[in-house]
Design a protein around this nucleic acid. Sequence first.
DNA 1: GCAGGAATGAGACTCATTATCAATTCAAGG
DNA 2: CCTTGAATTGATAATGAGTCTCATTCCTGC
Lengths: 156, 156
Amino acid sequence: MTEQLRQSAEDREFLSELHAQIGGRLAQQGHRYTSGRRKLVEVLVLSGQPMILPDIVEADPKLAQSSAYRNLDVLVRCGVIRRINVGGDHTYFELAEPLLGHHHHLICLSCGSIEDVQFDSEIEHLVDKSLNEISARTGFTPTTHSLDLHGHCADC
Amino acid sequence: MTEQLRQSAEDREFLSELHAQIGGRLAQQGHRYTSGRRKLVEVLVLSGQPMILPDIVEADPKLAQSSAYRNLDVLVRCGVIRRINVGGDHTYFELAEPLLGHHHHLICLSCGSIEDVQFDSEIEHLVDKSLNEISARTGFTPTTHSLDLHGHCADC
DNA sequence: GCAGGAATGAGACTCATTATCAATTCAAGG
DNA sequence: CCTTGAATTGATAATGAGTCTCATTCCTGC
């Protein structure tokens, strides 16, 4: 069995677990996990980075724009997908943290691309600790934090 | 001299220094520091927190919407004002970091308000250090970072 | 003062996103 | 394997934040 095939089998397993998990979440809220919604998830998984809507429908032209927007919204409300606002014309979408893990973004000011990065857990822990101090001090109750880098990617 | 008056005198001095600094920046790029632009800056200073455009023009109804948007853009391009995107309908504006100092945001998911907070310098230093490591590892050249808390403010 | 570029403001315009609605699909019973 | 009601779809219309246009006004240097 080649590395290529092994990888592909793992991917398939990952995808089907993901679909099962998402299907459950949707069912919980009285929604169906239709093929259009499944496609949205798959496009985002395959891309591996946040995407804007025009790129999503280009990646799978069977997706109708209005349905894509509507379904992204459903998936966002069910906690499956997350919106990212970086101030271009379009909103970015990616899998939500419960599915993709906690991570941060490298946002390129030249080409507008967004890449995911993980910080090591030591840093993440320190950040969490100081954020808790801030919360205690201000009465603010945090649910999550965002820590993004703005600059120029390796290609720009 | 009452505390009130002293405070007010300090504020006046702060404002006039700020105006001088901003005027210089604008002149450098061949722009004038007109009364409309001055008003925008003053509204933001007085507010003390990021504002969206409807609130800005409400705070000083002499400001025309189109001119306000245009001038905010000029001020952003000159590094005087910063845009903040948190994914409501509107973009938020605040004084840029060189004028306001490096800080972060408490973003309320209920009422949409944004409040500024400073982290202590130890944390800030740790964050910087880890961000530099990330940059070295990925080839990304950062110009700045944003670290914001999303949650619910003391009032909500 | 005056000439020429910069700035203004009212309104038209763009375009990402959302709402509408008739047609279609689906799941659960019977 | 029919039916029925609710969920979903997709084409299209509508919304609205932000931008552009352009005639007019304001500055600033000469």
